Simulated scan of single mutants.
Amino acid sequence: MVRLAVFALLVLAIWLVVLQLLRLARSKQIDWNGVAFAIGFVALAFYLRHVTGIG
């Protein structure tokens, strides 16, 4: 029962953070090319770690 309560609180906290980020994204000009590059860089790093086993 305690595990379920902790999980529910964690999901709620993540949801609130996502909502705050969405509000921030709407109110400011964001360089989406930079954001996409950063996400792609991290995804490529995980992929290469998986393929090569190094890291």
Rank of each mutant, 00 (worst) to 15 (best):
A8W: 07
A13P: 04
S27A: 14
I14P: 06
W32M: 03
W32Q: 00
I30W: 02
S27G: 06
K28W: 14
Y47T: 12
R23P: 11
G53L: 02
Q29L: 07
A43R: 03
V18A: 08
D31R: 05
Q20T: 14
V17Q: 07
A13T: 03
F7A: 14
F41L: 11
F37C: 04
L19R: 07
G34I: 03
L44Y: 08
A38T: 13
L12I: 07
V18W: 09
A43C: 04
R26W: 12
G34T: 07
V6L: 11
V6W: 05
F46V: 15
L10F: 12
Q29C: 03
R23M: 09
V11G: 01
S27I: 07
G55K: 05
R26K: 08
I39D: 02
F37K: 12
A13Q: 04
N33Q: 15
F37W: 11
L4V: 10
L24V: 10
I54D: 10
D31S: 03
D31W: 01
L22Q: 10
A38P: 05
S27V: 10
D31Y: 01
L12A: 11
L4F: 11
L9W: 11
K28P: 00
I54P: 02
L10M: 11
L4A: 13
F37D: 12
L21V: 10
G55N: 02
R23S: 08
A13F: 05
G34C: 00
A38S: 15
I30L: 05
A8L: 10
G34F: 01
A36E: 05
F37E: 12
L22R: 14
A43Q: 05
A45C: 03
A38H: 10
D31P: 01
H50P: 01
G34K: 06
H50K: 12
T52H: 00
A13D: 06
F7R: 11
A13S: 06
K28M: 14
A13R: 07
A13N: 06
R23W: 09
R49P: 06
I39C: 02
W15P: 09
T52V: 00
L9C: 12
A25I: 03
L48I: 05
W15I: 08
V6K: 14
L16T: 06
L24S: 08
T52F: 03
N33G: 13
Q20N: 10
R23D: 13
H50D: 10
Y47E: 05
G53Q: 00
R23G: 14
L16I: 09
G55H: 03
R26D: 10
Y47L: 15
L16G: 01
F37Q: 13
K28C: 11
G53F: 00
G40R: 02
L21K: 07
G53I: 02
I39Y: 07
M1W: 13
V2Q: 14
N33D: 12
L9D: 15
I54V: 15
D31C: 00
A36Q: 08
